[in-house]
Amino acid sequence: MRRSEIQHGLGMTMVLISGTMLFATLLMGYAIYRTSATAWPPMGTEPVNVVLPLLSTLTILFSSYFMHQTRVQFADHKKAKMNLDTTLCLGILFMGIQMLFWNELKSSGLLVGSGIFSSVLYGFTWIHAAHVVLGLCSLVWLRLVFKPATRNLDVKLLNVEKFWHFLGAVWVIMFLTLFVL
């Protein structure tokens, strides 16, 4: 492995460890709320409609797939670029679906201040979305420097890819714990 690959890979690993700890803390909190609550969702609250979260899960999974394809087809610059564009579009679509989801929650009468159930739903998805915005920024940056002549382009791609997969993985865990379980 080249030195820059090791150095930047290690840096990204540290970033991902930090990110993991942040989301692990949130999930630890959720576990405590969930286990100490007498009923979940609390009495009088309808369970959340999982259609939109399911859609966003599929979207982010597909975007991760195309991100992966970008690296697989790295040798063919044009194809790689198309895959990257698709990833970016799916990422933006994910944010769109999340917004629809928040609107749906709101119109179903579940407001941010309606108690711990809605606090968790809004708070955690907001925090995740804020990180997705960061991920989108790094994708846009990667798209801007995505030229064959760019130095260490493969390393840049690999690290953005790792971050993007991380966001996908966090979302899948959130989907499973917040909406399915």
């Binding site: 909190g29 709320y33 100490s36 979940w40 609390p42 941010v112 606090s119």
Partner: peptide, 21 residues
Amino acid sequence: FGTTFFLAGASATAGNGDPVL
């Protein structure tokens, strides 16, 4: 934003935030 992560409430109806958390 008015969430209740660290505010204790009626656990049956609103769920229960947890100051000790």
